[in-house]
Design a protein around this nucleic acid. Structure first.
Length: 582
RNA sequence: CGGGGUGUGGCGCAGCUUGGUAGCGCACCCGCUUUGGGAGCGGGGGGCCGUGGGUUCAAAUCCCGCCACCCCGACCA
């Protein structure tokens, strides 16, 4: 394949586009790989589309190699399956919905658990047919509140998603492991760094789940890891629960005047004045935060979350716990006179308590722990309020923020926090969708059993951006060989016909050897421009045919390392082939 | 959806305060020169000034609404 720059549909930009912030977006636009075409939607230009298809090819090869089979669905889907699974409502505003001329509801698929489930149900009905692994590489539509960062978060994006169908849990474990292995091979081939972290299954439902995160500070996900190898999405971090303490011998709870202490900071200050010897810190206080849960059906429910005062409530962690409900700030204090803003204490809380509000606490609140907390009247707090003796709660919830230095739940050391881009996500869905859509098969004994499922996604277009993020330098893009739009960039510099003749011959020789060659055959373009373009476009190998030609040499340069060598013209093709196949 | 910012040729920007012929650099076209690090000179083409309404003799400029984009938060591959 020969791509001539003189006719390639390409225009590189000298200046960075003003609306692009992250490097991948900036460079992909500047190098003429993509153009924005709609809010959160991009057009793939010839070079960009070649990268896209290479990423797709790697994924497809590995999916096929593991034994998964590709299918293709319509983009426009009927409402009913999503109604049956509950996601017509649960997916909320992120779902693109539309009506046809008869008024029937449709949607643009944001993810495809339902239709895959129905497809298998349509054709299979015996345990002998299972397991089966199906996948698609298709456009997904999500009406994101805020598309951003170019390809990293669009409203329309390409995703590879696969689904496994098994008769039992052991089978699901195997399907899950097979996908996990395939994902490792895929991301290794794509040259992407990744961390596999434990995750919440979130809106998809189900149990076990891991994410493949590409560590980068522009990532939207926060994850933790320990030196000992623990890694988890911050939403999924389990707090190390202390042992309960004996209640015997603890002092009685006592209420103190603590005027003007609506915040933890002011409260700790006053507590220290009252009891200078106690050494109180924010961690000795119990902060009770009221939120409103908004359920998918629109129902609203107040909830109080109790966390140690040295920590904020992490809304992402909280929402992950209460999904599919959403969390809003509580604004109805007038309607709940028992809730004293700033001085809220557990004494009135609990579904059976006077306020009739559900009360959940951080796992660190174990029986026997002593707390300073609100006395439910302005300017007063209660001290030595002992958990389990003086107050109870309706359950524990992982809603407190995770702080650097917190212990890993598996004892592998203190946690550090980092950011990452979610490249892939694998779930053990279990029977949620099979139940909802009644996907059952006959087992060996002739009994109907519900199929158990897994779902496994990779953001294809996002992976292109992630590769650009991780491989670019100050000069431009620098593609790994596996995904580069061409194997080699042949640059002819100068005006001498012999230069273009030699460059053309080299390009043709490389094409004949099976390479894809990007050939800068533009006349009357100065060498500086061609070099800048070559660096911006980022083919892994750049061959310059120019002034060295009078001495019989060309320059072969590695884009990523910058290493360059003068090579006799006659050896140039062999040298390039060796580099490409190394 | 909340907060902040920005919308003027393909890209980057000035003009708006103080209303009156739409401008600069890059890119594009033509000619000549130039050819190893985003060339020079000369000549060109291209813009419903995001959009709808209002004020005014007159609106890119002033007022109101909407839309889009970017950033920070809330949601996801």
């Amino acid at each position: 394949m020969l791509l001539r720059m003189s006719t390639l549909f390409l225009r590189t930009l000298r200046d960075d586009p003003a609306d692009a912030e992250v490097p991948s977006h900036r460079l992909l636009v500047r190098a003429g790989y993509i153009r924005r075409a709609a809010p959160g939607g991009f057009t793939w230009l010839p070079l960009g589309y070649r990268v896209f298809r290479n990423v797709e090819r790697v994924i497809r090869e590995e999916m096929d190699a593991m034994g998964a089979q590709e299918v293709h669905f319509p983009a426009l889907l009927p409402r009913e399956p999503y109604e049956a699974s509950g996601r017509w409502t649960e997916y909320g505003d992120n779902l693109f919905r539309l009506k046809d001329r008869r008024g029937a509801d449709h949607l643009l698929g944001p993810t495809h658990e339902e239709v895959f489930t129905l497809l298998v149900k349509d054709l299979y009905s015996s345990y002998k047919d299972l397991p089966v692994w199906l996948y698609q590489i298709q456009t997904k539509f999500r009406d994101e509140a805020r598309p951003r960062a170019g390809l990293l978060r669009g409203r329309e994006f390409t995703m590879k998603d696969s689904y496994s169908f098994d008769v039992d849990d052991a089978g699901l474990d195997k399907s899950y492991a097979a996908h996990r292995d395939a994902y490792i091979r895929i991301f290794d081939r794509l040259g992407l760094d990744y961390v596999i972290v434990s995750a919440m299954s979130g809106a998809m439902g189900g149990s076990k789940s891991e994410e493949f995160l590409h560590p980068t500070n522009i990532g939207e996900d926060t994850f933790v890891r320990s030196a000992g190898g623990y890694a988890a999405n911050v939403e999924a971090v389990a707090t190390v629960v202390p042992d309960p303490l004996p209640v015997e011998g603890l002092p009685e709870a006592h209420v103190e005047d603590t005027p003007d202490t609506p915040t933890i900071e002011t409260l700790v200050e006053v507590a220290r004045q009252l009891f200078p010897d106690a050494g109180y810190t924010a961690a000795d206080t119990l902060k009770n935060v009221v939120v409103t849960l908004v359920h998918p059906d629109g129902g609203r429910e107040p909830l109080v979350v109790g966390v140690p005062g040295d920590r904020e409530v992490d809304l992402k962690r909280l929402e992950a716990q209460v999904a599919p409900a959403e969390v809003e700030p509580f604004a109805e204090f007038e309607a709940h006179p028992l809730l004293v803003k700033g001085y809220l204490g557990p004494q009135v809380l609990g579904a059976d308590g006077p306020a009739g509000i559900r009360y959940l606490v951080d796992p660190r609140v174990v029986p026997g722990t002593r707390w300073i907390t609100g006395a439910n009247e302005p300017g007063r707090h209660v001290f030595d309020l002992v958990a389990g003796r003086d107050f109870t709660w309706g359950g524990v919830i992982e809603a407190a923020e995770v702080l650097p230095g917190d212990p890993a739940p598996d004892g592998s050391g203190p946690l550090e926090l980092a950011r990452g881009v979610e490249l892939g996500h694998i779930f053990q869905l279990g029977r949620k969708y099979a139940d909802a859509l009644d996907l059952r098969v006959l087992d060996e004994t002739g009994k109907l059993v519900t199929v158990t499922m897994g779902s496994y996604g990779i953001g294809v277009s996002r992976a292109v951006a992630a590769i650009a993020e991780s491989t670019h330098d100050e000069l431009g893009l620098a593609w790994p060989r596996e995904v580069a739009p061409a194997d080699v960039h042949v640059v002819a510099t100068g005006k001498d016909a012999s230069v273009f003749g030699a460059a053309e011959a080299l390009a043709q020789e490389l094409v004949a050897a099976g390479l894809t060659v990007l050939y800068d055959d533009r006349q009357k373009v100065s060498p500086g421009v061609k070099f800048k373009d070559a660096e911006l476009l980022g083919m892994p190998t750049i061959v310059t045919v120019g002034r060295g030609l009078v001495d019989g040499v060309v320059e072969v340069r590695d884009r990523a390392t910058g290493e360059r060598q003068e090579v006799p013209v006659a050896d140039a093709a062999a040298r390039v082939l060796a580099a490409v196949r190394s």
